[in-house]
Every structure is written in C-alpha cells, then in structure tokens.
Design a protein around this nucleic acid. Structure first.
Lengths: 175, 175
DNA sequence: ACACAATAGATGTTAAAACATATATTTTGT
DNA sequence: ACAAAATATATGTTTTAACATCTATTGTGT
C-alpha cells in the first residue's frame, strides 16, 4: 500500500493506523506551515500574528463607530487563544499603534483602540497579506476551499473552546 | 446573508471577503484548539506535543531495529518545525526518557535513543491518546476525514516547508 | 597534504507563551 | 448599607520558542 504524502514527509515506514491520527497531524502541520510563512511577512513590520490580529480587530470595530474594545473583548475575538492580552497590548502601545483609555462608567475597564499610526501600518500590509493568503491557498479550487471550511467548522463542533475550559464542571456531588 | 460559524465566533459583522481568508483562519483556529486539548492530556506526564513527538519517532525507528537517530534527523521527522532540537532532547534526557550516544564513525553525530523508561511512559499514554484524537475527530465521518486529509495535503503542495526556506535562492547575479 | 567549505550540534541571548496570583472596582444578596 | 462574590485587568515567575552565532569534525578540490 502506498504511503500518504504526510507519512512520506514524516518518513514513516507504515501508513497511519487511523485516519483520525492523520487528520490531526495534517491539520497541525498545515497550520504551522501557513503561520510560519505569514509571520515571515509580518516580522519586518515588527508584528506577530497575534499583534496583527489585535490591530485588525480594532480597525474593524472602530470603522463601525466604536471607540475601542475592552482588553478581554479583544482577547475573546482573537483567532487563537491569548492568555496574556495585557502584555500583548503593552507591546503595541510601545510601538504607538494602539492606546489604552480608562472609561469613567466602569473604572475597571480599559478601552483599547488603534491609533492613526496603527492604521497606517495595517494599510501598508493589506495588499501583501491578501497576496500571501491567496498564494498559500492557490492549490485549492474555490469549491475545495468551501468544502475545507465546512469540514473544519464541523470538526470544531466536537471540541471545547480553549477559553471556556475552566468551566469544566465536575459532576457536582450532592451536599 | 448569514455569517459563517467562524465569522460568528469572531463576532464579525460582515462575512469574510475571501474564502481563502476564512480557510486560513479556520485552519489555524482548529489546529490550535486541537493542540490545546491534547497538551492538556500530555502535561500531567511532563510532556509537550513536541517532546511526545520525539519519543514517538524514536520508538518507531527503534522498533524497526535502529539504535536511534541523529538529532537533526529527529528534527526533520517532526510534525512541526523545531529550531532547537538540542534543548528539546536535553529536557527528555533530564527525565531519563532518552539518551545521547556519540558515534565513532562520525564524531559530530550523536544518536538519540529512547530508554526503557521512555517506552513505559509512551505505553501509558497510548490508550488515552487514541481516545483523545478519536473523540476530537468524532464529528466527522470516515469519508469526511479522508477528504479533509486530501485537501490539507493538496494545500501544503503550494507551501514552502519551513525547514527549507533558508534555500531561498535569490536570482543569483552573473559574475 | 592542506586550505576551505560543509555538516552536526551546542550555546548565548532575547522575546514570547503560559500559568498562577494579586489589585482594583463593581454587583449582588440580605 | 455592607460583606462577599464577581469582574477586569495587571503583575510575578517559569518555561519554552526563536534566532544568531560558535565549536568540532568531516568532506572536497587542487
């Protein structure tokens, strides 16, 4: 039996025992290749995927009229889990791309907002980023991309979101 | 137009402009959820996905008769890129799960091999790990998993492997 | 044989991720 | 109104990732 591409890449002698194992590894490997490629584009601008994601979120909401978002709200909208949004924002502030503003209504909250300088960086990156992702996906047809999206969303249906796992209620013994 | 599941998760107001963008983010997000879930299983054993991967590779080759593998050969067989295999192996040595052996034929090379103790840890984990990945993929049918694998491998066809990118030959001016 | 390039790993250093815990503020229940 | 719980963010600490650089050894070409 011929080995799959993945099995060959990993120099495995035997095929995978379960198609589930193969799916897991294909997913992780493909995502990492994509991210590594994208980070290579972002690094010269002093951005990582995470910090870039923060800027994109803020540009989105502010273009719809919002003044900004509370830190945790930013974190909850990110593509990947970020357990330390404070220092992620710190780095962006140091660059002058975002600001923190204490709100008066609830003084616990800080609104994080993108600055003009931040918008400029994003603008510079818009074109290159679109080219990058389109190139990355260029081997798949539109129909295949749609099917891929369907399968990935369906797969996530069976997973616990990393951000909510603290709510792992144990069966709660009667008192 | 109804938003995709991903767009809703990210609280986007508008659908994605390109199906490519959506595929990229779905891939990264799904992979991260999977990995986070798996690491939660491995952590109590003192393992990360990377160190676990090293042990699996070594068990594989040694069960086929090899004495071990050179560090860089281990790195090249890993699912994800590892730019610091030395200290990854260091950590496994500290736990007593692998060993380093200098070879006489080529004294630059060290053979990394899994120990009996390492094999024991893997054995303990075999069952739980299979359960974990099968559960993770349980929303997809076998046919869907096969299709997912096909799409992911096809997508990788268009990508530069992270490990080989140093060979980015610039157009090489004539001399 | 000898200079030089190539290869295999190791090391130094910086930045970022991960997790637990702390502080400040607001909300809730009585 | 007030103690206690909940919320929003910040901080301290440890581990790991990432990158560049360095050493030791082997291979190559003349």
């Amino acid at each position: 039996m011929a080995l799959s591409r993945l099995a060959s890449e990993l120099k495995k002698k035997r095929p995978f025992e379960r198609v589930e194992d193969e799916a897991y590894l294909n997913l992780v490997r493909t995502a990492q290749w994509l991210q590594h490629d994208t980070e290579r584009l972002l690094r010269p601008y002093g951005l990582s995927e995470a910090t870039y994601n923060v800027l994109r979120i803020l540009r989105g909401v502010q273009s719809d009229g919002a003044l900004g978002l509370p830190s945790l709200e930013v974190a909850s909208r990110m593509v990947t889990r970020v357990p330390d949004i404070t220092r992620l924002v710190d780095r962006l502030i140091k660059r002058g791309w975002v600001e923190r503003t204490r709100t008066d209504a609830d003084r616990r909250v800080v609104l994080v907002s993108i600055t003009g300088k931040g918008l400029e960086v994003l603008k510079e990156l818009d074109g290159p980023l679109v080219n990058c992702v389109v190139r990355q996906m260029s081997k798949l047809t539109q129909a295949e991309l749609i099917e891929l999206n369907r399968l990935l969303e369906k797969a996530r249906d069976g997973l616990t979101p990393p951000c909510e796992e603290e709510n792992e209620k144990q069966p709660e013994a009667d008192l």
